[in-house]
Design a binder for these strands. Structure first.
Lengths: 215, 215
DNA sequence: AAAAATCTTGACTATTTGGTTGGTTTATAT
DNA sequence: ATATAAACCAACCAAATAGTCAAGATTTTT
């Protein structure tokens, strides 16, 4: 399933100039919205970061709200794409490994998407339409059902599947959202490639064991 | 150890009128800052929520930045107070139980503090002074050392203690920060008292087992 | 009860900012 | 080559908003 509500801005396939400008604007906007917040990010600051005059930005996107919606849409698409899907035939061990690996990868490779998403939710999901807000309910229900099957079958520990999903989401996303804090605590300037493997290993190890899927 | 940089606003013990007004303002401001962000929260909107004229708000707090700093300070104090401390003599099991219980309690009882904190960190900790930014490094180092002792002693699984602390922080805080999403997914209007116990049980159970501290 | 300190508030100001306009330049199609 | 459409952009405007001020009201101190 894919989120399909495209904005006018990103839907119509136009010339490559448009595509390129829109991308520059969207990237700039994403950063500004994270750092300054929705209200704090001025169209001028987005334009500056994108190296375009303000009027040009508003030529491609009718108004600020539209820019934000486009950014949000990209974020949701990414979330949707990056979430590891699981199937009954995977069995619990492989399923958990898959979800964790996918989520950690996404957190490290695209922290900004994660941050935009987190900001939006923390602030009350004001800009998310009903559809996007409730979309995950179905996803969680489906996956929970699969986990329950494994639990009833004695293939894993009897833990609440919904909480388990939250646990995996929160721990993985944490490395993106709280990047600033984590780097400060570890006294480092940036994440490195190895961190992905290290974190994936740590989480997989402890969670699998927590689910009685590992000695 | 306590964060001790008090703002002018909260430090000087003044009359009860001042105390009462400041509290009303700070509560209103906390909500506005969460919902609207720093820039988006207008002094007028804070005043409205606090049921005071704007000029009165600015009489108690010189400017908006000051209001925000006071809110942030309260948040940090709470974080500091609410974090379960652990000691070597507790042993790993009790220590983890204590931290989880303290953090879950804080997340459910004071979600707004958690949200303000999360917003600040995600946005790059722009308003946190160096001291506050690096404060937790020491905390984490200390606790990691204790965990390492237990690990070397064979009292628990060989998991990375720093990652373990992040895991506990993220999972517990998640219930506060992503309240909106969690309630939507669970199709509920509000958290209830039992949720605290349920979540505490779930997390303690799975994490203890993940650390080989439970069958 | 008078004086001093604290508190309250409407009115005003300077600045920032989202968005518009209209004219110019550049790219594309015929 | 010429016409048409797309892209560019300086200058402008109206609304929102942080912060000031000065005068009056209330509380506290002496």
């Amino acid at each position: 399933m894919v989120l399909t509500q495209m904005t006018t801005a990103t839907s119509k396939k136009q010339g490559k100039i448009r595509a390129k400008s829109e991308e520059k604007i969207l990237n700039a906007a994403q950063e500004e919205f994270i750092i300054q917040g929705y209200k704090g990010a001025s169209v001028q600051s987005i334009a500056d970061r994108a190296q375009l005059p303000k009027a040009n930005v508003l030529y491609y996107f009718k108004n600020k709200e539209n820019i934000y919606h486009a950014v949000l849409q990209l974020t949701l698409d990414m979330w949707d794409k990056g979430i590891g899907d699981i199937k009954l035939e995977d069995g619990p061990k492989k399923a958990i490994e898959k979800i964790i690996a996918a989520k950690v990868e996404m957190a490290f490779k695209n922290p900004n998407a994660s941050k935009i998403y987190a900001l939006e939710i923390i602030q009350g999901a004001q800009h998310l339409k009903e559809f996007a807000r409730t979309y995950q309910r179905q996803w969680v229900r489906e996956k929970a059902k699969i986990f329950n099957h494994w639990i009833e079958n004695g293939e894993m520990a009897d833990v609440n599947p919904v909480n388990l999903i939250f646990l995996i989401w929160s721990t993985t996303q944490h490395y993106a959202d709280f990047e600033t804090q984590i780097l400060t605590i570890m006294n480092r300037a940036d994440y490195e490639e190895e961190d992905i493997a290290q974190v994936t290993y740590f989480l997989t190890d402890i969670i699998l064991r927590g689910c009685k899927l590992k000695a």
